[in-house]
């Protein structure tokens, strides 16, 4: 059997394309023997960035761990669309307990494996931004602080999507959600709120922290693979557009995710033991409007009249990221 039958296009990107790479450097996703950890047949919306992000990350993790993986899932879209019995889409040992305890459940699995002298199995915990930055934050910080042997994957779609698009601590300023409506004096999510959990993870001094985007498959897979090779608490924050919640075209999921990176709004970086060690450069900076205008959650910013102040504030955030993480160097 040849690998020619797999087609893998990323049109409109700067990526060379898998078929032009030698086999060893191709992505796990492009391989015939990928595990499809999250198999087809689940119930995610069309163009769901979270479904893609989870499959990309877990297939890479499966390969890196020689298929010795156990995953814990917080309550949320990923858990709900993937799992109603008896139609679980999971091909790997998978457990869901509650919305706010995935990091602790994973710590418990890691502890049990240690008690049983199994050091060949990797434990992953995964959850949405709500599960991670809000309700599960205490458990996450505890898992970090104890340096438990767990890789935590946050799929950040910037709101509580499973319950119908409500604001979370990761919702960006000005975004419209169903609890930060585009009405009143300051339409959308108030500026100045929110928390940057990758930076908080970094402050715990854990062995590995990274941000990744569903639009940069090579980078995402590389980071997951690297994280699997490290012991102790590890954290990867993956940016995953949600067409339903963001009001973007399901066909534009990759484009939207890529523009978040290329505008500087979602910086890609890696950190080890509390220090940022590298960032992924932006190749051609785009103004934030190119990203925002594809999403109805920011529609109120474009007027008429256009909210130039808000747009400038968002641009300032992007410019700040570019400066802080050296994205244009």
């Amino acid at each position: 059997m040849t690998t020619e039958r797999i087609k893998f296009y990323q049109t409109g990107t700067f990526t060379a394309g898998n078929r032009l790479l030698d086999e060893a450097t191709r992505t796990v996703q492009s391989r015939l023997d990928r595990t499809n950890s999250l198999n087809s047949g689940h119930r995610a919306c069309q163009g769901c960035g979270e479904a893609l992000g989870a499959r990309y990350a877990l297939d890479a993790a499966m390969r890196a761990s020689h298929n010795q993986l156990i995953a814990v899932n917080a309550t949320g879209c990923l858990e709900v669309f993937s799992s109603p019995y008896p139609e679980s889409a999971w091909q790997i040992p998978w457990m869901h307990s509650l919305f706010g305890n995935a990091p602790a459940v994973a710590s418990g699995i890691a502890a049990a494996l240690r008690a049983k002298r199994r050091d060949d199995v990797t434990v992953i915990a995964q959850g949405g931004d709500g599960a991670t930055v809000d309700i599960g934050f205490g458990c996450l910080s505890g898992m970090f602080e104890r340096n438990d042997d767990v890789l935590y994957l946050c799929y950040d779609n910037e709101a509580y999507m499973n319950t119908g698009i409500q604001r979370s601590g990761a919702t960006p300023p000005f975004a419209r959600t169903n609890t930060t409506q585009a009405v009143g004096e300051h339409p959308g999510n108030p500026i100045g709120n929110g928390k940057n959990v990758p930076r908080i993870a970094l402050a715990h001094g854990i062995p590995y922290v990274a941000t990744a985007s569903v639009a940069d498959l090579h980078d995402l897979e590389r980071k997951v693979t690297k994280a699997i090779g490290v012991r102790g608490a590890r954290y990867i924050h993956v940016h995953v557009p949600c067409p339903l919640g963001w009001g973007s075209d399901p066909a534009h999921t990759m484009k939207v995710a890529r523009l978040a990176v290329e505008s500087g709004l979602f910086p890609l970086f890696e950190a080890e033991f509390g220090k940022v060690i590298c960032s992924t450069p932006i190749r051609r900076k785009v103004p934030v409007e190119r990203y925002l205008e594809l999403q109805t959650r920011f529609k109120h910013l474009f007027g008429p009249p256009q909210d130039t102040e808000a747009l400038a504030a968002i641009q300032a955030m992007a410019d700040d990221n570019i400066a802080v993480y050296g994205l244009m160097e």
């Binding site: 307990s97 699995i109 049990a112 505890g142």
Partner: peptide, 26 residues
């Protein structure tokens, strides 16, 4: 034996840790 004692950050975490551990056969 090789029992693992986890000092956790809340009771919610304590029982959650045991959920994972028990489901792993401990």
């Amino acid at each position: 034996g090789r029992c693992q004692f986890l000092n956790v950050e809340s009771e919610f975490a304590a029982l959650s840790v045991l959920i994972g551990a028990s489901a792993s056969g401990a």
